[in-house]
């Protein structure tokens, strides 16, 4: 009876006056208890997410000196910063790069994570834990630290990877100096860091697929591809969707990898929303415009979240 807000515990007959009785009943409702128990988390979410987000929106409406609202030519007052961004070549380049970076990195992480999860799933249980631990190492190291390690490997003048390539007479690669190589380097590091998360999520999903389904498919003469296509993937669809959505949000908001590896260069060709927002807002002392840049992620991610979560709900309904 929890969902409709009725009593979780029946009241003792004849307990106290009418007012005390109502308060007692209110305090004993499951919904009240649930609210009280989630209150600490709600306070944290409102304090650390809700308030900063609202403050960020407010900041994005101000002028550079933060003395009043930013006026626009063709957008209403308060949206002037967005209007300036719409007219900026560099900003549209950042939008395009953020999309390329996030989509490519998430796709690669999903594919590598899926492959690794399958490999692990088929290793005998005894040795699985060891491999699982080792494969999770990139995800456990703080990304700023591990990115610094990658930076040393990609260093423009003293790259250890280039040193190895030179041994095999392969010419040195300008990892961070040439735009496409720099973009690839940023994506490589993000994939290296994020693929273990996909692996562990997919591994958990794989382990929850009932063995009977595979047995039934085997009796029907299904090939391994057919088992993957018609048993594994449908059973993992929700986990895949949620993991991709979560990773997309985190990857879109990525800051440290770009900041440490390329600082947005060469020629702004590796900037993503967060690094560009920091450059505009903090380094260039234009906090309102920096806030406007970072808020631009919100509608993109909201659209992604809407479609992914709608898909999850539909599948759940179909399975019920």
């Amino acid at each position: 009876m929890a969902a409709d807000g009725t009593l979780a515990v029946p009241t003792a007959a004849g307990a106290g006056s009418g007012r005390a009785n109502t308060l007692q009943r209110f305090a004993r409702r499951r919904s009240t208890i649930a609210f009280l128990m989630t209150l600490p988390l709600l306070v944290v979410v409102v304090g650390l997410v809700g308030y900063p987000a609202a403050y960020g929106i407010y900041l994005s409406t101000l002028n550079r000196r933060m003395t009043g609202f930013m006026e626009g030519d063709w957008l209403p007052t308060g949206l002037g910063n967005f209007e300036i961004l719409f007219d900026s070549d560099t900003f549209w380049m950042v939008v395009w790069q953020s999309c390329i970076f996030a989509i490519t990195a998430v796709l690669l992480k999903a594919l590598i994570g899926f492959w690794l999860a399958h490999m692990l799933h088929h290793i005998p249980t005894k040795g699985q834990r060891k491999w699982r631990g080792m494969l999770l190492v990139p995800w456990v190291i703080p990304p700023a630290l591990s990115t610094l390690g990658w930076w040393w490997m990609f260093d423009p003048s003293y790259s250890s990877i280039n040193w190895i390539l030179n041994i095999f007479a392969v010419p040195a690669v300008p990892w961070l100096g040439e735009p496409w190589w720099a973009r690839a380097s940023v994506i490589i590091v993000n994939v290296w860091y994020g693929a273990p998360f996909f692996m562990i999520m997919y591994l958990a999903a794989l382990k929850s697929v009932p063995e009977q389904l595979y047995e039934a498919a085997a009796i029907d003469g299904a090939t391994s591809w057919q088992r993957l296509r018609y048993v594994t993937l449908p059973m993992m669809a929700n986990i895949i969707s949620i993991t991709v959505l979560f990773s997309l949000i985190v990857t879109f908001a990525n800051y440290d990898i770009v900041r440490v590896l390329t600082n947005g260069g060469p020629r702004d060709l590796t900037h993503v929303f967060a690094s560009y927002a920091f450059q505009v807002g903090i380094l260039s002392s234009n906090i309102p415009r920096g806030a406007a840049v970072s808020l631009f992620m919100f509608p993109i991610l909201a659209v992604c979240a809407f479609f992914v979560l709608r898909g999850v709900t539909r599948r759940n309904k179909e399975q019920m």
Binding site: P156, S157, P174, L176, G177, T262, P266
Partner: peptide, 9 residues
């Protein structure tokens, strides 16, 4: 200058 100066910090 060296070829990699575009990525120098």
């Amino acid at each position: 200058l060296p070829d990699d100066v575009w990525a120098w910090d």
